[in-house]
Simulated assay, not measured.
Amino acid sequence: MLSTSNDEQVDVGERILEAAASCLLALGVERVTLAAIARRAGVSRPTVYRRWPDSRSVIAALLTARVTDAWVQAPDSGTGRVALVTRMVAVAARLRRDEVVMQVLYHAPDLAMVYIAERLGSSQRRLIDVAEVELAAAQADGSVRSGDPRQLAAMCLLITQSTIQSAQVVAPILGEDALAAELTYTLNRYLS
């Protein structure tokens, strides 16, 4: 008899997302199908369909997981503006090095543009939510200027997101260290 414990369901979901990442890198965004994802994950197509209606939804969930993981894995050196900016810059660097995120950004512009110009995705909303809380705390300790912390968080997202998107274009001018230094300066000045 098959177990339906929550741990196994989470494990299956993670396997599906890992398989989607593998498919995305091997096949490209446009050639990823639910059948290919299911095959690589070692599950049936209905198992994938129970969680996501189509391959684009799986890819969106994969991106959300990657962005959320980048935030969780970034160094948390306390509270205040300097700590928050350090974390934001670390998240940007991690996402710029994430092959899956870059594959979507550079090879699926129609999908990427949805989250750049049309609407906020789940990962963007999550980042705004967590940054808002940290910005409010930094305002309380006096290290961040006054203003609506949600609006400040949204602007920090735009600044950081544009840095991630355009880093490749300015790489001959701003190497990785210089880009991180300039992003740090920009965010610190904006929030001071």
Rank of each mutant, 00 (worst) to 15 (best):
L2E: 13
S3E: 05
T4I: 02
N6K: 13
N6P: 13
G13I: 01
G13Q: 11
E14Q: 10
L17S: 05
L17K: 08
S22C: 06
L24A: 02
L25M: 07
V29Y: 15
V29K: 11
R31H: 12
V32W: 09
V32F: 05
L34V: 15
A36G: 12
A36N: 07
I37M: 07
R39N: 09
R40I: 02
G42R: 08
S44Y: 13
R45Y: 14
P46N: 11
T47L: 09
Y49L: 14
P53L: 00
D54N: 14
D54F: 05
S55G: 09
S55T: 03
S57D: 10
S57V: 06
V58I: 02
I59L: 05
A61D: 11
A61K: 09
L63M: 13
A65N: 10
R66M: 00
R66W: 00
V67H: 12
V67Q: 09
T68A: 06
D69K: 09
A70M: 04
W71M: 07
W71Q: 05
G78V: 01
T79C: 06
R81E: 03
R81N: 01
V82K: 15
A83E: 13
L84F: 04
T86M: 10
T86K: 13
M88F: 08
A90Y: 09
A90R: 07
V91D: 04
A92M: 06
A92L: 01
L95V: 02
R97H: 10
D98V: 00
E99D: 14
V100Y: 10
V104R: 09
Y106W: 11
H107K: 04
P109F: 00
D110M: 02
D110K: 12
L111V: 12
L111F: 15
A112V: 01
E118Q: 06
R119Q: 08
G121Y: 05
S123W: 15
S123L: 00
R125G: 05
L127D: 13
I128L: 03
V130T: 07
V133H: 15
L135C: 02
L135A: 01
A136L: 09
A138L: 04
Q139R: 04
R145D: 07
D148I: 02
Q151H: 15
A153R: 12
A153W: 10
M155T: 15
M155V: 14
C156Q: 05
L158M: 14
T160G: 04
Q161R: 06
I164W: 05
A171H: 10
A171D: 11
I173F: 15
G175M: 03
L179H: 12
L183T: 08
T184N: 12
T186Y: 08
T186K: 01
L187K: 04
L187I: 03
N188E: 14
L191T: 04
